[in-house]
Write a protein that binds this DNA or RNA. Structure first.
Length: 558
RNA sequence: CGGGAAGUGGCGCAGUUUGGCUAGCGCACCUGCUUUGGGAGCAGGGGGUCGCGGGUUCAAAUCCCGCCUUCCCGACCA
């Protein structure tokens, strides 16, 4: 260790906020070069390679084959798939000296599809699954939390090509199972959830989420095993809602509500519960303005509106647009007499004698009833999941948890193969599009997620499988160098040992050992000088035993 | 991109409000001596364009203008 490049820090770096980020910097795993761009130092890279090796073993066992593709990709390739324009500013673009345009790959569907389409002609050559480890580049809108959301990050991506959907499902399944084993072997507590396919596209997908309070995404999980990302989760509202009995329909009435716009304000002004409100949101989209209705105590899920409307993009409308479409300024929009398509969350329609904006400044309508007073062009699920909602499969209460997305599997279908002409000749002699799947694991993110789940106030507590080393050999007082050297040599035959032979005070060595969090610490000091015993400490439990050095390599378990 | 905060030796910070002596503290680093079980002690020492550029002033880390970088929140709730 006196020769190992391992700069540890006593104090938390100012830039770091969450435990994994602080600890990765303090323990000398990583350093920052620019926002969202990190270097991996020897200790950090060892852990990355451990994770990489676990992934490699499981994917090889599942029949996938490792390759390495270029990080730099020509614009023309991305134009074939249509993503040069679609991917947006997240795509890192550059030009060579001749002015030819390239991007730094954020993912490799285009490249791998080209490779396979150029080299596979017959169903006899299918299925094939290729994977690689590589630095990926995404110009994130806001990099944060160290390597958790970085602009340059190490990723494993694989791609499967099959002759038919059934084959693709089994390729998908092989990956799905391999992923479960990978994350189990890494020692992670995780949930698998049904997820949105986002701009990768495809038929369906699953996210592998490491559960942690610092997670960036919300997921819904049920004790019955069902799990989904919060934007995808199927759910129903809680049963029986006390305080809202069936009511007589009352006549529609306009009330003066000067200057009050938000549900909360109007609710206070009229002494009505938010539950009685119809929140009306006006959006601009590529298909023109649309209105979305959710109950006052609910929140709109924009992803759901996006898929319901079939639009490519949606933005909350500017005040001028709101005025033009509803007749009133923002804050006074309502569903009655709407002239644009209205998308309603199904729970809105059940609200009796509801309150909403009147479509003119400083007025709201009360006693709105469906379908008497307004119509909708679409009804379904638009609102966000919230605490208390019930599982569609078993009726149990869904738990909303935060998670870190470490893996994502997609059944792509023919999206890329048809766009890029990846075809083969099938048994029947006809040319068909290959059916694809793609599968990613954020390797560097796995390292960070592991620390989020495994740390205490002293430092990291590595699961043995991905710890950078397995044993901290801590050499203390004076005359222990020789015994340490022989221990180091003996233990190294079986374990990965980090020998702290630095000329530092005991306190420094203990603190650093706790910080680095290797599973087992072997301390050679007082007890050895006194009665020849080594002190063996488990980092996770803190349990100590005193063992003699003879046959020590057989006596410890990691 | 909108809002907030911040940039001062390697790291963490004070100083800026109210301009003024040689820019300071802790840690780290170097030398020597002592020390050696929970981030050692003493003595000596090295290291700073105070983010960058411009301006105001007799005088700028400090005031003004512009820019850059970093972090946090948001980027959908009418």
């Amino acid at each position: 260790m006196s020769e190992y490049f391992l700069p540890t820090l006593k104090e938390d770096p100012r830039e770091a906020e969450i435990p994994s980020h602080k600890l990765m910097i303090r323990s000398g795993m990583i350093r920052k070069l620019a926002s969202g761009v990190y270097e991996f130092l020897p200790l950090g890279w060892r852990t990355v390679r451990k994770i990489e090796e676990i992934i490699r073993e499981e994917l090889d066992a599942a029949g996938a084959q490792e390759i390495v593709m270029s990080a730099m990709q020509p614009r023309s390739l991305w134009e074939e798939s249509g993503r040069w324009d679609l991917y947006g500013p997240e795509l890192m673009r550059l030009k060579d000296r001749g002015g030819r345009e390239f991007c730094l790959g954020p993912t490799h569907e285009e490249v791998v599809t080209k490779i396979v389409s150029e080299n596979v002609r017959s169903y006899k050559q299918l299925p094939v699954t290729l994977y690689q480890f590589q630095m990926k580049f995404r110009d994130e809108i806001r990099p944060r939390f160290g390597v958790m959301r970085a602009r340059e990050f190490y990723m494993k991506d694989s791609y499967s090509f099959d002759a038919d959907l059934e084959g693709c499902r089994s390729s998908y399944d092989l990956h799905f199972k391999a992923y479960k084993r990978i994350f189990e072997r890494c020692g992670l507590e995780f949930a698998v959830v049904e997820a949105d396919t986002g701009n990768i596209g495809g038929e369906f997908s699953h996210e592998f989420m490491v559960l942690a309070s610092t997670g960036e995404e919300e997921v819904a999980v049920c004790s019955c095993g069902y799990g989904a990302s919060s934007s995808m989760a199927g759910f129903k509202g809680p049963e029986g809602e006390p305080g809202f009995p069936e009511e007589e329909e009352k006549p529609l009435q306009e009330v003066h509500t000067p200057g009050v716009t938000t549900v909360q304000e109007v609710s206070g002004f009229l002494s009505e519960k938010p539950r009685k409100f119809i929140k009306t949101l006006i959006f601009d989209s590529d298909k023109g303005p649309v209105a979305a209705l959710v109950r006052g105590d609910h929140e709109l899920c924009q992803d759901k509106l996006l898929s319901a409307s079939g639009a490519k993009w949606l933005n909350l409308a500017e005040p001028e647009t709101v005025k033009a479409v509803t007749g009133g300024p923002p804050g006074f929009s309502g569903p009655c007499g709407a002239k644009i398509p209205v998308f309603a969350d199904e729970e809105v329609l059940a609200v009796q004698n509801a309150v909403s904006g009147a479509g003119k400044k400083d007025y709201h309508l009360i006693n709105i009833n469906f379908p008497r007073d307004y119509t909708v062009s679409w009804k379904g699920r638009l609102r966000k999941l919230q605490q208390g909602d019930l599982c569609l499969k078993c009726g149990g209460e869904l738990k909303i948890m935060r998670g870190i997305e470490v893996g994502h599997t997609f059944l792509l279908g023919t999206k890329y193969s048809s766009a890029m002409g990846a075809r083969f000749v099938d048994k029947d002699g006809r040319e068909k599009d290959m059916i694809m799947g793609c599968y990613g694991i954020g390797v560097t993110r796995v390292a960070a997620a592991t620390i989020e789940q495994n740390h205490d106030s002293d430092g990291i507590i590595w699961p043995a499988a991905i710890a950078p080393f397995e044993i901290s050999l801590i050499q203390l007082s004076g005359d222990t160098e020789d015994i340490c050297r022989s221990l180091y040599e003996k233990l190294s035959e079986k374990y990965e040992v980090l020998w702290d032979d630095r000329d530092e005070s005991p306190g420094v060595k203990f603190k650093d050992a706790q910080l680095l969090g290797l599973p087992v610490q072997i301390i050679v000091g007082k007890s050895y000088m006194k009665d020849g015993k080594l002190e063996v400490v488990c980092r996770r439990s803190g349990k100590k035993e005193y063992l003699s050095p003879e046959g020590i390599e057989e006596k410890i378990s990691i």
